[in-house]
Design a protein around this nucleic acid. Structure first.
Lengths: 239, 239
DNA sequence: TCGATATAATTGTGATCACAAATTTTCTAA
DNA sequence: TTAGAAAATTTGTGATCACAATTATATCGA
């Protein structure tokens, strides 16, 4: 195996569950590793290398990589090499703007379907976020945060936006994780509380504002990281 | 091959180009067939069946189907059968709303990058749409319409919304094509002209309004089709 | 004839192989 | 020592196979 992929030694596969099948297990493990910033952007991922690392045949890895490609999490270069793209400032900005557009829409579309028991569950999920941050576990905090948002948006049984939102999260994941590892403290206004209040009041405007503010707060905390801008790849205009 | 898949006999693969590779050719052929309503919703697609029909081995078909699954164009059922989902009224509505949300945003984000030569090209693309409709070729008209929108949004070199928008188009494609086949005449306000004017004036508000009106006009024309509502699948709430 | 069971066939997934393309390593000449 | 060419190795894609799961067909009994 090419030494350039040794950063993958930090890859921690999820527990194997037989019901899931190798295919899904590989996908979820890679997805998790990617979201947690365990895969170095710019380094080529090889099918056989990952298969060896995860003790599976190349087929499920191949399919998982293709799926992650489809979701925007990894990109295929001209030489057919697959890798996590390096983040550029402009793309980062576009992804965050799109996140706001999509998530405020998804939240509002879910509003009519939110029942008191849903709000109770959201409160529980929000408490899990607080717990993670109390333990200074930003990885768990991020995943719990996503679970909160995902649960909310999926209260709409006809919701079609979630796969799109997940794709944006995936694309932002590595860089956000890196940035958050530089944070020395996590002080946050709990916009989720504001969202919950808006849900109780069935106030669409307030809900959109809370979700947007939540996302912008997250963006601001990343931008406040000293020297973060130097970690963006020099951006090149499309050919 | 299972007789239930015989509707695929209407599948017209694109011309094979060696530079493209079998994989991409199969994908683009299936994508095109799907978008043009050549694949009956609800009927199972089999890998080997399609491979035989397209004179390729099952591998490229398998990967193309998985990619189309990822893009929301087809869905995998519990029994692992892949098929084009039947459209429900609620999902149709959500997809159109999301289309408006995404495309108005994408257009606005492209606005600062639009040059006179881009507007000239958009005029040319708009003329192609008119030409298609003059020939009563709604299939070509739809594809040309998409090309107009795609070109516009991609004027922003950092645009990240287009794969998401394409996914929505893909999901809407079969039903829209079916609905348009029932239209006896195509009278449309040319919202593209309004969009072009907004671009010339660098007027973001007017641009958003034109794109939104364009999409809503398209929606209205479909809803005006007599009996169209009876072609939606009975909707079931998520378990 | 109908329903249940058994058998046969089909299907998607994972494994493995072959090959062209891409990359790395080795060799040679200046 | 360096640059270029040749050779060796690796890589992704497409082909094919095996197997468990699913579906279709045949058989049997009431």
């Amino acid at each position: 195996m090419n030494a350039k992929t040794t950063p993958l030694l930090s890859l921690t596969p999820l527990e194997k569950t037989p019901a899931q099948g190798v295919n899904l297990w590989v996908y979820h493990s890679l997805r998790r590793a990617l979201m947690c910033g365990q895969i170095e952007p710019g380094l080529p991922l090889t099918i056989r290398g990952l298969a060896e690392l995860m003790h599976v045949s190349p087929m499920p890895v191949r399919e998982a990589l293709h799926r992650l490609t489809c979701e925007g999490a990894v990109e295929v270069r001209d030489n057919r090499r697959v890798m996590v793209p390096q983040m550029t400032a402009a793309r980062f900005k576009e992804l965050y703007e799109l996140r706001i557009v999509l998530e405020t829409h998804a939240a509002e579309s879910a509003l009519p379907y939110c029942r008191p028991e849903h709000i109770t569950e959201l409160e529980r999920l929000d408490a899990l976020i607080d717990l993670a941050y109390q333990h200074s576990d930003t990885g768990e905090g991020s995943l719990a945060n996503q679970e909160f948002h995902r649960y909310l948006y999926q209260r709409n049984p006809f919701q079609v936006a979630v796969p799109l939102i997940e794709s944006i999260w995936l694309q932002l994941g590595p860089f956000v994780r890196f940035a958050k590892s530089k944070l020395t403290q996590h002080y946050r206004i709990d916009r989720h509380k504001e969202a919950l209040q808006a849900l109780r009041q069935q106030n669409a405007f307030a809900l959109r504002r809370a979700i947007e503010a939540d996302i912008r707060d997250g963006l601001a905390s990343i931008q406040a990281v000293e020297g973060i801008h130097e970690h963006f790849k020099e951006q090149a205009l499309s050919a």
